[in-house]
Design a protein around this nucleic acid. Structure first.
Lengths: 129, 129
DNA sequence: TGTAAAACCTATAGTAACTATAGAGTCAAG
DNA sequence: CTTGACTCTATAGTTACTATAGGTTTTACA
């Protein structure tokens, strides 16, 4: 299939597919005589792997590492495990930050009574302090 | 004070201060004869306002809006309120995403028994599906 | 007073992970 | 044989900074 079809079946935009290829996350595809990219099911699977990793917010660099690891099936999978654990730690950290953020925003929002002028606005006041 | 001192007292890097100025978040400071920026307490307060907004993950564009609103003290503060509410909605959305993400990562991590080879690694398998 | 270091200046490029555009070539249908 | 859909490469833009290069100004010390 050509890139347009791969894009539709995978749900990735054409530009993103080309971008992943340039970044080395997808192997260079065959080309038609007219230089169009030609993909098969293997390519689709590769792309879906990348997509799944991205949906877990794994960085492109780490995805590359995972792909490299996949190609060494006999090695220990402890590095895979470590990578996922690290990703989990990152997510936990961000969640903590977001919670604090949410608290402050909620408290700020509660200090605003919307009939008021900006001059007396509790939100602006708390941002000023 | 000069930019180095403002940087230290505010905790913002010198480059960031100059960047905020360029983006219109800080008013253009006075200059010495030798073209060095000169700041007073007002500038420090402006910068702290921006910093506080950023700590709430408010975008530079929205901070600019808030600054504009601050300069119209007689208007209704409902737009300020709306902006904060919108920010809160964004944070809530991200938290939801992160929770889903955390769940999947945790489940994946649990499928790995670290003595195993990559070939049989449950993590890679779940990323492949 | 001379000079060297520290602080400052502007302008530009790099970061992450894409998205969007320009300008050109290729292919299928009518 | 031409039109429109599809594809190609290369480049610029996005956000909020950070880092660098190459130059100027000020300050401190001998």
């Amino acid at each position: 299939m050509k890139i347009g079809e791969l894009s539709k079946t995978s749900g990735c935009s054409i530009q993103t597919i080309r971008f992943y290829e340039k970044e080395g996350l997808l192997s260079d595809p065959e080309r038609t005589e007219g230089n169009f990219r030609l993909y098969d099911v293997t390519a689709l699977k590769q792309l879906e792997f990348v997509k799944h990793c991205r949906s877990l917010d794994i960085s492109l660099i780490d995805i590359k590492r995972l792909i490299d690891l996949k190609n060494k099936p006999e090695e220990s999978c402890s590095s895979v495990n470590a990578l996922i654990a690290q990703q989990l730690a990152l997510v936990n950290k961000r969640m903590k930050e977001l919670k604090a953020l949410k608290n402050e925003l909620q408290q700020m929002a509660s200090t605003c009574n919307s009939d008021n002028t900006i001059e007396g606005c509790g939100i602006i006041k708390s941002l000023d302090s």
